[in-house]
Computed example of a mutant assay.
Amino acid sequence: MTKGKLKKMLPGGNTSQGFYSYYDNIIRPDANRIFIIKGGPGVGKSTLMRSIGETMLDMGYDVEFHCCSSDNGSLDGVCIPEIGVAMLDGTAPHVVDPKNPGAVDEIVHLGDFWDETLLRQNKPAILETNRRVGRCFQMAYFALKEAKVIRDEWESYITEAVDFTRVNEVTLQISEEIFSAVKPDFTRPPKARHLFASAITPDGSVNYHDTILQDTRKLYTIKGEPGSGKAALLAKLAAQAASLGLDTEQYHCSLVPQNIDVLVLPRLSVAIANLSAPVYFDPNCLPNLEVSKEINLSAFLDTEALNNFADEITGCRTRFEAAFNRAVKRLNQAKTEHDLMESYYAPAMNFHDINAKKEQLLARVIRYAEENASDPFPE
């Protein structure tokens, strides 16, 4: 049996606006079954979801791992698109409650398998650790908000030096190359799926471009200084794709979640990606991926205008890096505190019974696989 394909992305992120969620895009509300996994830290939610996902991969099903932006080794969800089944971590900060209880959504509460007496013995330590986790996240978000303000200042200097006529010309050129042969499809509304391809994590900036682009054949890479027009270019291409009836996968910026960083057009096997720092991705890691064009929008900057703000731009770079690194440091501290909190919960868990529950869930997922084969984003 051929093993299925694994795709990784992030449904939520640590951003300049705090924790930002695209959880509603993991799977459609009218899926076959959505298991919402509840329970405290260290009770086995991520391990349960990963185990079931890996089993389905081995059975030949394509599986999506929705990774956690606050814990590089954990999952926030698992989706099996072909059968319309997903498992979601329903605890804070990504609180998920049933929208269609029973018909689609079902809560699986791993708190049924903990020893309350043991947990109550550690109540003061748990409360204090939880407070410190929250405080670390608060400080991380302060730093990311500061980084965004610095970036806005930085962008103001760059924007003043941009030759937008040339930016518009290259946007039109890319658009013609991608869409000129596309026959519009107005038989149904186009679908747009919104997630993150990269994240600001306790380990710094990470991305999953290597799995997101594994089925892409042509890639357009965009680079440039903040304010050089990257976000606007990607937004225009996304709008044009929608106007032609094309479905899109839109992966958003980890700092400014409204901006698109990666636009994937599955029907065309084409993607456009902003590969400016702090995102690093080498397209050569995917042998079937052809880089059709590399565009550096910084080439359209007026050097004389830039020189007028050289000191200010250098200062912005330095201050932005300091704020960004401070945010990562606080996220790392939050992860350390969270690990400590897990150490209070893990000894109170009956993992034998949790494993039995996992096997029951797996049996049900396999049954859905045998009985149903549907798109989680149906027509």
Rank of each mutant, 00 (worst) to 15 (best):
H194D: 05
G204P: 04
V256T: 13
L268C: 07
D282S: 14
H194Y: 05
A242R: 09
L268H: 07
Y251S: 03
E169M: 14
A161F: 12
A273Q: 04
N207R: 10
N207L: 09
A238D: 02
I174V: 15
L195G: 01
A161G: 10
F186R: 13
I212R: 07
V182M: 00
P266K: 11
P202S: 13
S205G: 06
R151K: 07
L234A: 03
K183P: 00
D185N: 06
P202T: 03
E153T: 12
E249F: 08
I174G: 02
T187E: 06
P283D: 01
Y280A: 04
L213M: 06
N259H: 11
L233M: 06
E176K: 10
V279W: 02
T159D: 07
A239T: 09
Y251C: 06
Y208I: 01
S156R: 07
V170D: 00
V149P: 00
S228M: 08
Q240V: 10
N288A: 15
P189F: 15
N284C: 03
D163W: 15
D185H: 10
L244C: 04
G245C: 06
A199V: 06
L195D: 00
G245L: 04
I222N: 01
Y208N: 04
Q240L: 07
E153I: 08
T248R: 05
A232W: 14
Y251D: 00
T187Q: 05
N284P: 04
L246H: 05
P283W: 05
P184Y: 09
I212E: 00
G245W: 05
E153L: 15
I212S: 01
P278R: 08
N168A: 13
V279I: 12
K191C: 02
V256S: 10
S276V: 01
A238H: 13
S269C: 11
D261I: 12
K148I: 11
G229S: 03
E225G: 05
L237A: 03
A181H: 13
Y208K: 08
K148F: 12
A271V: 13
L234D: 00
S269E: 08
K183R: 14
N259A: 11
V264G: 02
K191M: 03
Y157D: 00
S198V: 06
D203F: 15
D203C: 13
R188I: 12
A238Y: 02
E225N: 11
A232E: 11
H194Q: 08
D215E: 11
R193L: 10
C285D: 07
C253N: 14
I174T: 13
K148E: 06
S276E: 03
S276L: 04
V170K: 07
I200A: 03
I222R: 02
A277H: 11
D185R: 12
H209Y: 10
A199Q: 02
D215R: 15
F164E: 01
I272L: 15
T165I: 14
A231D: 03
L172C: 09
L246P: 00
W154F: 14
A271S: 05
R217C: 01
N274H: 14
I260K: 07
S175F: 06
